[in-house]
């Protein structure tokens, strides 16, 4: 899932300075299950913003709604009705949700309430960890199902570096060394010899470095209207 966290209230009140009537829009998918932008979080944030602004002597109305999926135009289209009365939309969606709203409603100020942080999973209740960076060329087949791109602070392909100690990363002693995990996993599967192969430099053009990425599936596209 996409994991996000709410921005500090002070940052949001500064961002919303001058606005009087705001629509807070949650999203029912990823950010709901990571407790950052679902129905309840929209309610909490909206209530907090109304109180903070009332205390500042700058009352602001914050209406609340949550759509099933903020990252697809069809799901946000119904918001169009009645949008005129709001000076801004505060999106509690991920960065994709914010941009989908902004693309669909280009005349409206759309502001982000969340810091979208990573693609990951909950490792225990209340704890989420990164697992994927969408680098565009998956290497999990050679790394025992453990991603060095997202889990090694140096994105090594031939790790571990010299800072790995006691199974932990030099950057943070609470973070397991990805290459220690990779080694243990491959060793357990009797495949540790594979770590002796030198992995060549990566082609990062499949990653963010190649610019915004796009996937086209011709079999799924709608036929041009003139052909219908």
């Amino acid at each position: 899932m996409i994991v996000a966290k709410q921005k500090p209230l002070s940052e949001l009140t500064a961002m919303l300075d001058g606005y009087r009537n705001v629509l807070a829009v949650g999203c029912g998918t990823c950010v709901t299950v990571c407790f950052a932008g679902g129905v309840k979080e929209v309610g909490i944030l909206a209530s907090a913003l109304r109180m903070a602004r009332r205390l500042d002597g700058q009352p602001m109305s914050v209406a609340e709604t949550t759509v099933q999926r903020q990252c697809e135009a069809e799901y946000i289209a119904p918001l169009a009705e009645g949008l005129d009365e709001f000076d801004a939309i505060l999106s509690l969606g991920c960065g994709v949700g914010v941009q989908t709203l902004a693309e669909r409603f280009p005349d409206k100020r759309v502001l982000p309430a969340l810091d979208t942080t990573f693609m990951g999973l909950p490792t225990e209740q209340g704890v989420w960890e990164e697992r994927c960076q969408g680098c565009g060329h998956c290497v999990l087949d050679i790394t025992g199902g453990i991603c060095p791109v997202s889990r090694c602070a140096k994105q090594l392909m031939n790790g571990p570096c010299g800072g790995s100690q006691g199974g932990m990363c030099e950057v943070d002693s609470d973070t397991p060394c990805a290459w220690q995990l990779i080694w243990e996993r491959l060793d357990r599967q009797g495949l540790a010899d594979r770590l002796l192969e030198i992995q060549p430099p990566r082609d990062w053009s499949t990653s963010r470095d190649g610019g915004p990425r796009r996937i086209v599936r011709d079999d799924l596209r709608l036929p041009p209207p003139e052909d219908v």
């Binding site: 109305s61 709604t65 759509v67 009645g82 009365e85």
Partner: peptide
């Protein structure tokens, strides 16, 4: 059911 926008945009007693 999501509230209609008119409903959710109802003045909350703040500001207006």
């Amino acid at each position: 059911p999501a509230p209609s926008l008119a409903e959710s945009a109802h003045d909350r007693g703040d500001g207006r």
